[in-house]
Design a protein around this nucleic acid. Structure first.
Length: 211
DNA sequence: CTAGTGATTAAC
DNA sequence: TTAATCACTAGG
């Protein structure tokens, strides 16, 4: 099976199926200072057509154009004035959708990963959280629109060992104000590189949640 | 828990 | 033109 076949056929089907499938997959990044390989352990699905939390919900703009393109491309955006986050485009050309990369475990090279994320207090912190993951991979604006299935790309997606169903957990997306009821976050149970759940600050606290 | 960062977008 | 929003992290 070629890498291109792997990504495009499956990512085109649906954002939820894509997020599930991407668990356990590998991302290879050729940084200026060396190569880093990570295993994806936490992902969130976003679907532009009917998902108020998706960047593409209100239509295509210059920023979110990659979400409307063919599947298997890298959508990098700048958020909160200082962070980059990385997504993989899903759904056929013209249908907006993406999966946000939220957490990953470093496979190699640990020394390069520590240099890329000098503030990480532990190895689990190297790529726990979407902006940390993007920083570790060295992703910036210029990487937006890269083809992750192209062997000549500096960032590539590869199949990994499949994650068995009993290790997969789902739940609400982290920090998303809209569509709280959708369990569109997927993670590998027990991985140290999965972020702690955080309620969105704008979400009203329910009486029963209060201590 | 909170500050802080700046692009993006919708509303004027 | 302006102001609110934002899929976050680091530090206390």
């Amino acid at each position: 099976m070629t890498v291109g076949t792997f990504a495009r056929e499956h990512l085109a089907v649906d954002v939820l199926a894509a997020a599930r499938l991407l668990l356990g997959c590998l991302v290879v990044a050729d940084r200026p200072d060396g190569q880093v390989v990570v295993r994806l352990v936490e992902l969130e699905a976003y679907r532009g057509s009917d998902d108020p939390a998706a960047h593409s919900y209100r239509g295509r703009t210059d920023r979110n154009a990659v979400m409307f393109g063919p599947p298997g491309y890298l959508y990098v955006y700048f958020v909160y004035g200082l962070h980059f986050c990385a997504n993989i485009s899903c759904l056929p050309h013209g249908k907006p959708g993406a999966v946000l990369l939220r957490g990953a475990e470093v496979i190699s090279d640990l020394d390069i990963a520590r240099l890329a994320r000098p503030t990480a207090r532990s190895d689990a912190d190297l790529a726990r959280g979407p902006a940390r993951l993007a920083t570790l991979l060295g992703l910036q604006r210029e990487h937006n629109g890269l083809d992750l299935t192209d062997p000549t790309s500096p960032v590539r997606l590869l199949p990994g060992d499949p994650v068995p169903a009993q290790r997969v957990r789902t739940g609400p997306r982290v920090g998303v104000a809209a569509a709280q009821d959708r369990a569109w976050r997927f993670w590998v149970d027990g991985s140290p590189a999965v972020s702690a759940y955080r309620r969105h600050p704008n979400q009203a606290r329910r009486q029963s949640d209060r201590k």
